[in-house]
């Protein structure tokens, strides 16, 4: 009897975890290369969700189609933010980067609040509530799509990093910044490219999330700590770590929500986050520093 309830909870957790993983992929990529904690990540996700909302409501574009336009758009936004705001303002100091990205987050979040007000909004796509049966459990179709798309995006990201020249340059900068600079790589450009890729991941996540989720100006906050948790859990900068960590976080949230009540679901994630930071800051998969 018990397992009949728990299995759906775990499966739903896995599906939500895939979206978390997508959000965390962008964050871990930025961390892995720039070695910075991007506090604006949640606010950028909120902006992406609003962009999806706007595309659907005003232009009538389906979220799954909108991804084709929004991913490049957010790539450019991320590129510009790093190249023209974060890079110059931070003077290369970690604490400054924290503050600058926090400032950007505050600006974006409140600009959205100013324009869209605090209302929570949803879009109603025809497939929003459709379900498929899997092993006796009914799963939301948009979430299942999100699950597979998360793996596709992770694969794509891997391919970009492994096979393209830009990807090679990104890996070189991540490993040895000074050496990369000496061999003629434009580090500022590569930093911005990485930030752009990470932001584009958010646009994809937003398109996959919106059909079964909602948006308000503060929605990104719920994701930002979860994404940090996943990044820390999976080992800072590790793409497979982010995927596994994301799925794990989704299951933890779902089970905590199941046992402790819906509103306490995220507390499990945060407690896990604190415990990992305190006792194993290199992550569950990361090598010991």
């Amino acid at each position: 009897m018990q397992t009949a309830i728990i299995i759906p909870a775990i499966l739903n957790g896995v599906l939500m975890g895939a979206v978390y993983a997508l959000v965390a992929l962008g964050l871990t990529l930025i961390y892995g290369v720039l070695h910075i904690i991007n506090f604006a990540h949640g606010a950028l996700l909120t902006a992406a969700l609003f962009a999806v909302y706007f595309c659907f409501r005003t232009l009538g574009i389906d979220p799954y189609v909108a991804v084709l336009g929004l991913a490049p758009l957010f790539f450019l936004l991320g590129y510009a933010l790093q190249r023209f705001v974060i890079g110059p303002a931070a003077h290369g100091e970690d604490s400054n980067i924290l503050l600058v990205t926090l400032g950007i987050a505050v600006v974006i979040e409140n600009a959205l609040l100013y324009v869209f007000r605090a209302d929570t909004r949803t879009i109603d796509v025809p497939y929003g509530f459709s379900v498929i049966e899997f092993g006796g459990t009914f799963l939301s179709v948009p979430r299942v799509v999100g699950f597979f798309a998360a793996f596709a995006v992770a694969g794509l990201l891997w391919a970009i990093l492994a096979l393209t020249d830009t990807g090679k340059a990104i890996r070189a900068v991540a490993k040895e910044k000074r050496g990369a600079e000496l061999s003629g790589i434009d580090v500022a450009h590569i930093y911005a490219m990485t930030f752009g890729l990470g932001t584009a991941c958010l646009a994809v996540a937003a398109c996959l999330l919106m059909p079964s989720y909602y948006v308000n100006p503060h929605v990104g906050n719920a994701f930002v700590l979860v994404a940090f948790t996943i990044v820390v859990l999976g080992g800072m900068g590790s793409v497979p770590g982010a995927l596994i960590g994301g799925l794990f976080a989704g299951v933890v949230e779902s089970l905590c929500g199941f046992y402790l009540g819906e509103s306490l679901g995220q507390i499990g994630i945060f407690l896990m986050f604190i415990l990992v930071l305190l006792f194993r800051p290199t992550g569950l998969l990361g090598a010991r520093a």
């Binding site: 503050l99 400032g103 505050v106």
Partner: peptide, 21 residues
């Protein structure tokens, strides 16, 4: 207008970190 003061705070934060540490 909700949020406007915070937009300014955020912008000032970025400017101060960038230009007047």
């Amino acid at each position: 207008a909700p949020g406007l003061d915070l937009i300014i705070y955020g912008a000032v934060l970025v400017l101060v970190v960038g230009f007047a540490p």
